[in-house]
Simulated scan of single mutants.
Amino acid sequence: MGHHKHDYAGLAARGALTNDIGRFEPYSYDAPLPDRIETEVRDEVIGRAITTNRSPDVPFDRSVNMYRGCEHGCIYCFARPTHAYLGLSPGLDFETRLIARPNVAAALRKELRAPSYRPAMIALGTNTDPYQPIERDRGLMRGVLEVMRDHAHPVGVTTKGTMVERDIDILSDMGPDLVRVGLSVTTLDADLSRRLEPRVPVPARRLKAIERLAAAGIQVRVMVSPVIPGLTDHEVEGVLRAAADAGAVAASMIPLRLPLEVAPLFEDWLRAHYPDRARKVLGRIREFHDGKLYDAGYGHRMRGRGVHADLLQTRFRRACRDSGLATHLPPLRTDLFTVPGSQMSLF
Rank of each mutant, 00 (worst) to 15 (best):
M1W: 06
H4R: 05
A16N: 05
A16F: 03
N19C: 15
G22Y: 10
L33V: 13
L33A: 09
P34A: 11
V41F: 09
S55Q: 03
P56D: 03
R62P: 01
V64H: 00
Y67E: 10
R68F: 14
E71C: 09
H72D: 10
Y76S: 06
A84N: 07
A84V: 06
L88T: 02
E95N: 11
T96W: 02
R97C: 05
L98E: 02
I99L: 15
A100Q: 07
R101Y: 02
V104K: 07
K110S: 08
K110A: 13
E111Q: 02
A120R: 08
M121L: 13
A123V: 09
A123E: 08
Q132F: 02
R136L: 11
R136P: 01
G139D: 06
R142P: 05
G143P: 02
M148V: 01
D150Y: 01
V157N: 04
T159N: 10
K160G: 08
T162R: 09
V164R: 02
R166F: 03
I168H: 06
L171V: 04
D173Y: 00
D177L: 00
A190D: 14
A190M: 05
L196T: 10
V202H: 13
P203K: 07
R205L: 13
K208Y: 01
E211G: 03
A216Q: 04
Q219K: 08
Q219R: 12
M223W: 11
M223T: 07
V224P: 09
I228N: 02
G230V: 11
L231V: 12
T232C: 03
V236L: 14
V239S: 06
V239A: 08
A242D: 05
A251R: 05
M253A: 13
E261G: 12
V262A: 11
F266T: 01
Y274G: 13
P275D: 07
D276A: 15
R277S: 14
R277E: 14
K280M: 15
L282K: 12
R284E: 14
E287D: 15
E287F: 08
H289M: 04
K292T: 15
Y298R: 12
G299E: 09
M302W: 06
G304T: 03
Q313S: 13
Q313W: 15
F316A: 02
R317P: 01
R317F: 10
C320W: 04
T327M: 15
L329Y: 03
L329I: 02
L336M: 09
P340Y: 12
Q343H: 14
Q343F: 13
